[in-house]
Amino acid sequence: MENLLEVIDLKVTFPTSKGRIRAIDGVNFKVKKGEILGIVGESGSGKSISSLSIMGLISDQGQVEGKILFNDENLLNKTEVEMRKIRGDKISMIFQDPMSSLNPVFTIGNQISEAILLHNKGVTKKEAVEKTIELLKLVGLPSPEQRIHDYPHKFSGGMRQRAMIAMALACEPELLVADEPTTALDVTIQAQILELLKEIQMKLGMSIILITHDLGVVAETCHRVAVMYAGHVVEETDVYTLFANPKHPYTKGLINSLPKLGSRERLTPIQGQPPQLYDDLTGCRFASRCPFVSAECLENEQVIAEVTKGHFVRCHKEVG
């Protein structure tokens, strides 16, 4: 399969009162055509910043380096005008924070039909409204004919999320970046929406980057998975290998922290906290929390390497 997206050595830094923070620090991953790539990882590890970089939505203060190849063109060389065209036409995004992408002063219906009108020349207003209602039905919003007249603040968290998914699908993108698209939804609707995403993905041959904390969702939805920790991808492999044979100690810890249905046993979290990303970091960034740590881990920066075909790990103990 062809690569639709290739992120190469992506780095993003922000100025803070304590110096520049290295929000992501050399991230690599690929998304093939028609593939669903899951991104999981520590809160604050740079999942959202990675996806915002792809969208060209990092604020002016942020400094972005590296390459983001989309259909072999580097998105980082595009002008703001070109990026605006790509966003919502070829790439669209479902944001982690539903309120930030819904405009409080326009009705839900207005916002979605506007997106449809912008990206389909020749569509009438009436057709756009019909398509809006259809999309809202598709994502399972009750009474869409009436609810399109509502403003975002009248929607519950889950309803906002569904409205946003409808908006992201409005332009039938080649790549959909979904940042925690189902966190506010209950599981029956989540199952429905993930089913819907898989269905649309197959029908349109769309690729999806799915960012989530829910390893259950990853197991059921994604083809491949990248695990992020402290600004790096620490493991990348197909979904079966990830659960059957995780290699990186962080990935192992993550899988161990899950509450198991039917058990009330005390959970085993990964001890400690991630490093602060503006510190001068030497050695492996997981070292301070790693149960297998040794002297070398503290000295040498780890590199990501292929341990078996298609399985990449950033830990020298695994790479040897």
Binding site: G140, S143, T188, G216, A219
Partner: peptide, 28 residues
């Protein structure tokens, strides 16, 4: 149905889902 919809963190497990038919009713 709710219990059967919980996603399982194991890609080799294919769960029997109780799929709910029909639209979500409107609280309106």
């Amino acid at each position: 149905a709710l219990l059967s919809s919980i996603p399982v963190p194991d890609p080799t497990v294919k769960r029997e889902r109780i799929l709910l038919e029909g639209d979500v009713p409107s609280p309106l």
